[in-house]
């Protein structure tokens, strides 16, 4: 089983049935695996704040949601995270590609990377960082934690974790 398939298997095991995605090259394998999983409704979003709105609705309709996106999205979604997800106390696992870390070939990505953890910290969002192959073993516990505390939770996955580009 590939890492991407393991991630989606953890989603399924934790009752996640509604996943929205904004693409990233690094997360392509996970997005493919989400699309292939019959128990998950995959709904691509045009922008991450839109995706968080979809997830809020799905949650209120009784389905556990998740969002898959790049770390640049943190810059896009601060207002939504604060005034929707956190204000109404809703759970939202956010599987995030941590672009701009070691092995990053595109300089501009670093500009958002240096703000990513600071922003998440400022927003009091519990944050986990998958840096080495095998770190995904914590995902099951992170998902359980997210739906226990009804908070948005960030899972940053960097290039070293994914084995480079």
């Amino acid at each position: 089983m590939s890492v991407s398939e393991k991630i989606v298997a953890d989603f399924v095991a934790n009752g996640i049935e509604f996943v929205t995605t904004v693409p990233c090259k690094q997360l392509g394998g996970v997005i493919d695996a989400v699309e292939k999983e019959p128990s998950i409704y995959h709904i691509p979003s045009n922008k991450e704040d839109e995706g968080m709105g979809l997830c809020a609705g799905a949650f209120m309709g009784g389905k556990r949601p998740a969002i898959i996106m790049q770390n640049t999205a943190i810059g896009v979604t601060v207002n939504t995270l604060v005034t929707l997800t956190q204000f109404y106390r809703m759970p939202l696992p956010m599987l995030i590609s941590y672009r701009g870390e070691l092995k990053e070939p595109v300089a501009c990505q670093v500009e958002m990377a240096v703000h990513t953890k600071a922003l998440l910290n400022q927003l009091n969002i519990p944050t986990y960082h998958f840096h080495k192959p095998g770190d995904e073993e914590e995902l099951d516990a992170i998902l359980k934690y997210t739906f226990m505390c009804n908070k948005p939770v960030a899972i940053l996955t960097d290039a070293t974790f994914w084995g480079g580009y």
Binding site: Y41, D49, G53, A56, G57, F59, M60, G61, T80, L84
Partner: peptide, 20 residues
């Protein structure tokens, strides 16, 4: 009632409609 987050009424509604 949305107390914040301008623009997302349609997204929340669609997510809700798809879920039940």
């Amino acid at each position: 009632y949305m107390l914040g987050t301008m623009g997302l009424s349609s997204s929340i509604g669609l997510g809700l409609a798809l879920a039940q």
